[in-house]
């Protein structure tokens, strides 16, 4: 599978097959075939947009929840992870090394909503031994993109030799 095609889409999912062909020197047919196959094989999982909702003044609460788990025989952490990631409020779930086991990202409309999820749904799961909830205060950078400030760039002279 041609990685250049995937990298082009990863940079900008709206790049057309024709543009990718021009940029990489790979034939258009090959580009289209690669994309089709990558979508079929779920190498390309989804096309998404990074939205800075704060810019619109939208209230949105995100929390990072450290979850400590009692692993279960035979299935380890996977079964409990699945119990957790099936909740639609849960954005991301990672198994991590260190003082806790699962890092769970939750979104809610309000802090109450997010907190309620933790104490009603998460903390009550049988093998969950404890949780620590961190509410996100500010998003500086997400998926490699700088959201606010810091991204300022000097301007070049319009003409130089």
């Amino acid at each position: 599978m041609n990685k250049e095609v995937l990298k082009a889409l990863e940079r900008d999912a709206r790049t057309t097959p024709e543009q990718i062909a021009t940029q990489t020197g790979i034939s258009m047919e090959e580009v289209e075939k690669t994309i089709e196959k990558a979508e079929r094989d779920r190498v390309i999982v989804k096309y998404k947009t990074i939205v800075n909702w704060e810019r619109l003044g939208e209230e949105q609460v995100q929390a990072l929840i450290e979850v400590k788990i009692q692993p279960q025989r035979n299935v380890g952490f996977d079964a409990i992870a699945e119990r957790i990631y099936r909740f639609p409020e849960v954005r991301s779930v990672y198994l991590v090394s260190g003082t806790y086991d699962l890092a769970v990202f939750v979104v809610g409309k309000t802090m109450q909503e997010a907190a309620a999820f933790v104490w009603q749904k998460l903390a009550t799961l049988e093998s969950v031994q404890g949780t620590v909830t961190h509410f996100l205060l500010k998003r500086y950078k997400e998926d490699g993109e700088i959201l606010e400030g810091g991204g300022e760039k000097g301007r070049r002279q319009p003409l130089t030799l």
Partner: peptide, 25 residues
């Protein structure tokens, strides 16, 4: 290029392919 520089620096919506340096920081 002085002449072009002067026109360009007062022009709105111009695209310059006249630079001689990277656009990366």
């Amino acid at each position: 290029i002085r002449k072009f520089f002067d026109i360009l620096s007062t022009m709105e919506g111009a695209i310059s392919l006249g630079v001689g340096e990277p656009d990366f920081v």
